[in-house]
């Protein structure tokens, strides 16, 4: 990849700065904890205002979608050879089990394919064991800087 010379610390710092630049990210308290080519890991803290079920204390599924969407988008950005904006085309999320109440959660997103216009990402969320995820997600992203008119008008990736 042409990202040679973009060392690991600089890459992590860039990903963290990207997260900080997103207003809603700050409201939720999202932060990048690891970043390498194709893979980004980010954290969503547990906060009382993010609870979706007051009877159980589970985080709201919607807050988790935001974590997944943003982490997955960042994984695409860190797969591209040149920095580019991306937009989510579609995203599916499966809730495998409830998250553990009171605990921060992590999302690990991997961009496993970048085509000319479209990038494909899978993502898992877990408390601390990546082998025991509570959420699994697949999503596709559009590369914003590609020539317009080719996406969403019947042409495949």
């Amino acid at each position: 990849m042409s990202s040679a010379g973009f060392d690991a610390a600089a890459r992590l710092a860039a990903a963290q700065a990207f997260f900080r630049s997103i207003p809603h990210s700050g409201l939720l308290g999202l932060e990048v904890v690891a970043c390498e080519p194709r893979v980004v890991v980010a954290r969503l803290p547990y906060k009382p205002e993010l609870v979706g079920n007051p009877y159980t204390g589970w985080l709201h599924g919607g807050a988790v979608v935001t974590l997944v969407d943003q982490t997955s988008g960042a994984a695409v950005i860190h797969t591209l050879e040149r920095p580019d904006m991306v937009a989510t085309l579609d995203l599916r999320i499966d809730h495998l089990r409830p998250p553990q109440p009171g605990r921060a959660v992590l999302a690990r997103a991997e961009c496993y394919r970048v085509a000319r216009d479209i990038a494909f990402v899978r993502c898992l969320c877990y408390e601390d064991d990546p082998d025991d995820p509570f959420v699994s997600s697949m999503s596709t992203f559009m590369r914003v800087s590609r020539p317009r008119g080719s996406v969403g008008e019947g042409q495949s990736a």
């Binding site: 997103i22 809603h24 990210s25 709201h60 599924g61 919607g62 807050a63 979608v65 935001t66 974590l67 997944v68 969407d69 943003q70 989510t88 995203l91």
Partner: peptide, 8 residues
């Protein structure tokens, strides 16, 4: 944010 639209 796309996540906000989804959550909503």
């Amino acid at each position: 944010h796309g996540g906000v639209v989804a959550a909503f």
